[in-house]
Amino acid sequence: MTSSNGDPMIIAQDVHKWYGNFHALRGISMEVKKGEVVVIFGPSGSGKSTFIRTINRLEHHEKGKIVVDGIELNADMHNIEAIRMETGMVFQQFNLFPHLTVMQNIMLAPIQVRKKSKAEAQEKAMELLERVEIPEQALKYPGQLSGGQQQRVAIARALAMEPKIMLFDEPTSALDPEMIKEVLDVMTELAKSGMTMVVVSHEMGFARAVAQRMYFFDEGLIVESGSPDEIFHAPQEDRTKLFLSQILKH
């Protein structure tokens, strides 16, 4: 372990991103320390997903600086491989590989990328399935699982690479209400284990329980940030108040 608690794992400085003429990110700056859980929320189209995807370079930022675990993200291809080994990502649509079993989904990257032995990868995969509480589904195909189970497999798959950072891009938005809890439980457990997490989500209960900091995005900018207490009880900006009142109303 090179970095101790309190060291910044992710540093973003004035990050910009354009899609054609559309200015999707208009100068995002953020610092995430080791072991910190950060929740990003905001209306759709506010750039929160785009931003989280720049952290593992699924999207390329065009201006500004992003440093992940001491490695700056730029066009150098070797960096990308290194970064992607350090960051796990969980998607809204799960994106499991439908032609592989749950077990194979989890074992693929450790064997192919980390060059682990099959036995080692298998042991680790089983351990992770226990952790997300679906060991009995190991030999099924993703299509045979419920949404909540699939998302937990996706989390296990990301964890199998033993990442230092976990990125969650709206992990519960595609789930039925009763399945949201099982996924959030896994995420809460993960947060308590000391994982550095960046979560794009509107699950305010989860944010209140585990987040150290919250960021409110709108139109490609950070409108407001603060601890959950500050955000929920003393929001400074009108835009934040309006948005919170809308999502907390029901």
Partner: peptide, 17 residues
């Protein structure tokens, strides 16, 4: 779907893999 490429990249698989 594009998500398959993204998921593969995100777990660190290279282009050929």
């Amino acid at each position: 779907p594009k998500g398959q490429y993204e998921a593969a990249s995100a777990i660190g698989l290279g282009g050929f893999q």
